[in-house]
Design a protein around this nucleic acid. Sequence first.
DNA 1: ACACAAAACTTAGATCACGAAGATTATAAC
DNA 2: GTTATAATCTTCGTGATCTAAGTTTTGTGT
Lengths: 175, 175
Amino acid sequence: MREINECKNINGMGNRGDERIARLVRLAARGFNRSLQIRLKTQNVTFGQWIFLRILWQEDGLSQRELSERAHLTEPTAHAALTRMEELGYVERRNIAGNKRRQHAYLTPRGWELRDQIEPLAIEANDIAVVGLNTEERDILRKALTAIIQNLEKDEADAARRGVRVPPTKGNPAA
Amino acid sequence: MREINECKNINGMGNRGDERIARLVRLAARGFNRSLQIRLKTQNVTFGQWIFLRILWQEDGLSQRELSERAHLTEPTAHAALTRMEELGYVERRNIAGNKRRQHAYLTPRGWELRDQIEPLAIEANDIAVVGLNTEERDILRKALTAIIQNLEKDEADAARRGVRVPPTKGNPAA
DNA sequence: ACACAAAACTTAGATCACGAAGATTATAAC
DNA sequence: GTTATAATCTTCGTGATCTAAGTTTTGTGT
């Protein structure tokens, strides 16, 4: 058994304190995802589907674009999830008001049914994660994360203004 | 233009405080990744490659398994990254001590070269992220994230022990 | 009315990550 | 020594996510 040596670099070189935060955030995010995924699997719902189901339970009938905005995800991601959920019979996509462009997603009875089964699971996973943290700590955690998110968004916006953006994944013959 | 509408759900129903932490953590993790990716791209290195390069700069010659453990990633992930990095000429894989099973990865001169170009970029991205947080807040942030990671790891271990299927809130492991 | 811009959805291709299962090789048991 | 077990790497398929680019539809300006 190989023991992951977490302490190794606390005072070591090359590992600035700041860097550890990025790592901790990534690990925590992965933990959240996995913990929830394990639970969702029992209901045959994937993590990506849950994200959109959760939004639709609160606002049924949103368009794909609106859904992607609510979820903070791009349209292709929303598209893939919605297509799959339509196949699974959780949602149905329709046009309304004679608009042939906009596709609104509506939950089916099956989609509504899932709510009672799934929501408790999500709440449970989230409760477990913050065990042992008091109110003040949770507040600071929220505040700190919010600040980080804003700092990084600003950084990305600055970069974009200079013409630098997240590297393309398509047609990148450079590598 | 992606306008992140953060305020929308603050008072909305169905959005427990705890749940927001999971979301904030995910968004922060994504921010870190994107911010770093933008910078790494200038040196033609992907995020996944950086993770392993970073480890090798400190411990050259690790095996694939050791690398995957250091990185907290699985072996297929390490395998893909190493294969690509070998193609790119950043590392070289060799057997040592007559062991034909274990594959040790060694940085090439090119791999070492990247260090000076890339490390400052990572440090910069991380510095930017925590602007505006004082020492105490950073400490609590670290402590809270560490606790969350451990809580979720324990949760996952418990689930695995029970057969990977875990709904304590209800007795319906259907599907 | 017609051309053009903007909006909305789709498709394509890449990266990163994972689990499951296959293939080798090393080590332990007998 | 032969067989069983464990370690290690590899292959395969899936999913989530992204950027870029294509298609169709709607709306606007002249």
